[in-house]
Structures are given as C-alpha cells and as structure tokens.
Simulated assay, not measured.
Amino acid sequence: MKQFLAGFGFRSNTPAFEVGEEFEAFVTGLNGHSLVRVGDTVLSLPGETVEPDTRVRVRVTDFDAGADQGSAELLEVLGEGAF
C-alpha cells in the first residue's frame, strides 16, 4: 500500500509563495492594478493594468502566508487565455 501512495499528496487551495519565485498565471481581475489569483491566494501587480484573462509571467516580491496574499512583479505578458 505504501508504494501505491508514493508521491501522492493534496494541493492546497491557498498555495504559499516564496519571495523571488517565478511562475506563469492568468490575470483574473483589476482593482486599480492587475490581480493574479492562484486558488484563493491573491497577488497584486502594483502599477500594472494588464487586462483579465491574459497569461503572464510574474516574480513574487512580497507574500503574507497568513493572509494568503502578496505582490508580484510583471516579467512578461505571454498572451490571451484560451477559455
């Protein structure tokens, strides 16, 4: 049974990020600046107004794991979403 479950785990709906971590995500909203949501975690992109449903590459600049929110720097706009 142990071999069967090897590598098995659950994903959190509130992932935590490390400062400096880079990843791709979709802009999900605007609130004076662009917002990126990963599950229930929200990262703001200060000074950026990229339209929702745009795929972007970001770098985390600040993160509060207790509040499940932080900010990130826009590195690259990758294109429109395919919804």
Rank of each mutant, 00 (worst) to 15 (best):
L78G: 04
G79E: 06
F4P: 00
F26Q: 12
T28K: 06
F4Q: 12
G7V: 13
P15G: 05
A67C: 08
E18C: 05
E24I: 05
G79K: 04
L74E: 07
A6N: 13
L75H: 07
F23N: 03
G39L: 07
V56R: 02
E48G: 07
R37G: 04
A16T: 15
A25H: 01
T49F: 09
G32H: 05
V19L: 02
S71A: 09
A72L: 09
V42E: 11
P15F: 04
Q3Y: 03
R57K: 13
V19P: 09
S44F: 01
G47Y: 08
R55W: 01
L5V: 11
R37D: 12
G29A: 15
S12A: 14
L75E: 04
S34Y: 10
G81I: 03
E24L: 10
R57C: 06
G32M: 09
E51W: 02
A67N: 11
Q3E: 14
V36F: 00
K2T: 15
T28C: 08
L5R: 08
D53Y: 11
K2E: 15
E21N: 06
A6W: 05
E80Q: 05
G81H: 06
V56T: 10
Q69N: 11
A82G: 05
K2Y: 14
V42M: 10
P46G: 08
F63D: 01
A65Y: 11
S44T: 14
Q3D: 14
E21H: 08
P46S: 11
L45Y: 05
L74N: 02
G39Q: 10
E80A: 06
M1F: 11
